[in-house]
Amino acid sequence: MPAALPVIRLTDRSPSISGAEMTAELVPPAQFAHASFESYRPDPDYPSQAEAVAALHEFAGVWRAQRPGGFFSRNRKPKASLPGIYLDGGFGVGKTHLLAALWHEAPGRKYFGTFIEYTALVGALGYAQTVKLLTGTGLICIDEFELDDPGDTMLMTRLLGELMATGTMVAATSNTPPNALGEGRFAASDFLREIQALSANFRTLRIDGLDYRRRDIEGSAVAVDDAGLDRMVTSLAERGERVSCDDFDALMEHLATVHPSKYVKVVADLDVIAIRDAHVLHNQTDALRLVAFIDRVYDAEIPVLASGHPLSDVFDDEMLAGGYRKKYLRSTSRLIALTTGELPPHD
């Protein structure tokens, strides 16, 4: 039997992270480490899914043409195409799978991250340093492109404009939330309007279909009492699991002192995260911080134990009716999965 490990406190972790370390994390989540066009299973009832695979093959053709001995290597040139592509569709149709498959096709230096991860990179390094770091990249994939923050959207549009001008190709998906009753199901017109300076550079692929998991956002995150949480944490530590346990308020206060780009290192090497005395949040800054934190926990596939208020209900009604509704709905879905042991692959 393994020796008991000490219980970790996330509030003791204040990691530093370099630009090189941040960009090293810009790869597809573990569940998409081997995603390919071949492993994507188009729904025959929705032809747009197979059409999207064919279009992405075409988009990737320029890289195949550049490989020695490739089909285009003898007096042929690759078919001209736009340097940007946008995957537009509802939750669960496989947009992230296809985005990751495209990333795997690309040679050389390439990055894959969520919109929030790229804006965090700019926030941590500064705009000029980020441009310098990413210049020369062959492909940038942006999952869940956010359209609800004008400032961040303008920042990303400017950044992508500079990079595309130097030859970088860009692929993006929308931030459509899980099963939000059709809300924002297709965001292509919004995307093109918000990045109007770059819209002529993007081809839009609309992907119809049903959520292949047939899941919904109904239900609640699992919560236990404090005594039950203590027993589970002790048992996990005695089994040799790397488990953390923090009071909800203390964790929220600590996250305010750590740049979101560093959250990935806050949760590094953990098997389970325990949170005590969760409650409803009324401060939007705290709520958005929690969203960013849960995104990193979800990507790392770390189960969560919690006492107090169910974590899926910590966003108050005003937040759920406001401009960041999509982010909170997505986080709610992830909190349910993290606390119920049903960690699904991303869209």
Rank of each mutant, 00 (worst) to 15 (best):
L99V: 00
L102P: 03
K132I: 01
R67E: 14
V122D: 03
A60D: 02
G84E: 05
V62R: 02
Y46H: 13
A80F: 08
L98C: 09
F115R: 00
F112E: 06
T137M: 07
H97W: 08
K110R: 15
G136F: 10
T130A: 13
A52T: 12
S81P: 00
T135A: 13
R109F: 08
C141R: 00
A80K: 04
R67L: 13
I142P: 00
S81I: 09
L82C: 07
A55W: 04
L82R: 11
V53T: 11
V62T: 11
A54N: 12
G84C: 07
T137I: 10
Q66T: 12
F91L: 03
Q66M: 14
D88H: 07
R64N: 11
K132D: 11
K79L: 13
F112D: 00
L134R: 01
Q129A: 15
A65Q: 11
P68T: 08
G92T: 00
S81V: 06
D88T: 02
L133M: 14
G108I: 05
T119W: 03
V131F: 10
G108S: 07
G108E: 07
R64E: 15
G113V: 02
T130I: 05
T137E: 05
W63N: 11
A60S: 15
C141M: 03
A100P: 00
F91V: 04
L99G: 05
L98N: 07
L147S: 05
G90T: 02
H104K: 06
K77P: 03
S73R: 15
K77E: 14
L99T: 01
K79I: 08
G136P: 01
Y111K: 05
I140H: 08
Q49F: 11
A55E: 03
G113E: 09
E51L: 14
A100Y: 03
Q66A: 15
T114D: 01
G92A: 06
Y127R: 06
A52I: 03
Y118P: 01
E51K: 13
Q66S: 15
L134C: 09
L139K: 04
T119A: 09
A54V: 08
T119D: 07
P68W: 10
F91Y: 11
Q49G: 12
Y46Q: 02
